[in-house]
Design a protein around this nucleic acid. Structure first.
Lengths: 142, 142, 142, 142
DNA sequence: TTTT
DNA sequence: TTTT
């Protein structure tokens, strides 16, 4: 029976996207995204908490990421959870959980104190990355 | 700036929930959830793909999971992504990404060929698990 | 600046879909969906509440609805909110808010007390209905 | 069987919130939110489309809206669909569909061409508005 | 390890 | 490693 696997994030890029152009024409981008939350602890103090997410974007979304997304930009991302295995340097099996993006929308935010221009007010939405490209994902070092 | 960190899943439990009742009265449940997807490959064959998710539920949701959720049941889960560090048996730092549930709703599905009764048609929704309980999470072996 | 307009529903069809096959080959389906909720009132009694939604599905999703969806079936629907104007019989302008489906997944549930067979456990997900078809929506009586 | 009724919007306020302080201490806010989308038509021209949503917020969220939200501000809203009946001036029954907010997060954006200061970069998230307050909604003119 |  |  088919299921649903959906992630919705609003956060800030921790670094510029790293984009690889694969043989065959497909592109893939990786970056990290911070989502910030806060709560009051038992003493009533405000406590900040940041969660870091590994984002992967394919094809048109990878090219959009390469062109428009920079460290610090605020984005909305919709995608799917995907956990991959890989072998670490000691040949141990390790797991990494990523969000494979289906849609990325740029929001207005930018780092305070930034001298640069605001994030271009643009948005990209594509049809879900088809699973045909996914086997290529397994060949990638992260 | 506050962000959004939201996960929506519909899938089937891979095993019965494991529930721990902590000192102080809180409970925590862990289980795995499979979300199934399918696509056509380049040859037009239907290919199945299953993604496994680690689910954590606290307090009232943990007790609901203990009482009502069994291996194979189909559920809707809404929650947040959270990546924790832990030390493996070789004292290496490892990471695990979990979905901390804010809401669990039982759906009608059950394993075909099951002799048992259908999933009770019940649902539980609670206010978001407050972050005050989360430090306890770090004390848990998984 | 681009925005986000997303609706996620799990509920039961209030009637069989009504499907129209338009000139030019496109199809459109309409049906209503009930989402049930419950809460405790001040006296602690359980109170049921049903919300009814107008669902519209285009093209492949309309054909899927025509073939597989029946009154009482439980479905997951993801889509967009859209409010249309129309003229009522007294030539007054009226508004109706619909959910235009991007994805429909059949869940296992069926009406309690139903003698009929369970919903076929099948699922369909398509790329978002492109906006090119939407002008046609305005020509439809509902 | 319980269902799911969830709306996720990112858009800009069409006007300042109108807030009413009810007898008994509860507050309720109303405002409209525009979500913008765009697509290419058959001739390849970029076409803009704006959808307007009626937002209702209760209690703590209403007070947050009153204090912090202004016309033009960009927000993330999560809530539930709710369709209410009312009698129009000719005593005809009419329907209006609203999004009852469960969570509002302020984003960095502000109207282009605005001379005013940026939206304060603050966020509020509350537990879902309990249904106990909802009967009061029916007493409100909109 | 689920489900179809 | 972001942001406030």
């Amino acid at each position: 029976m088919a299921g649903i696997n959906k992630v919705i994030l609003i956060g800030n890029l921790g670094k510029d996207p790293e984009v690889r152009h694969l043989e065959g024409g497909a592109s893939v981008a990786h970056f990290t995204l911070a989502t910030n939350d806060h709560y009051k602890d038992k003493q009533g103090n405000r406590v900040e908490r940041t969660e870091w997410h590994n984002i992967t974007a394919w094809r048109g979304l990878a090219e959009m990421a390469e062109k428009y997304l920079k460290k610090g930009h605020q984005v909305y991302i919709e995608g799917k959870l995907r956990t991959r295995q890989y072998q670490d340097k000691d040949n141990q099996t390790r797991y990494i959980t990523e969000i494979v993006a289906d849609e990325i929308t740029m929001l207005g935010g930018r780092p305070s104190g930034s001298d640069g221009p605001a994030a271009p007010e643009q948005a990209v939405a594509v049809a879900p990355v088809t699973f045909r490209q996914e086997p290529e994902l397994d060949q990638l070092p992260f």
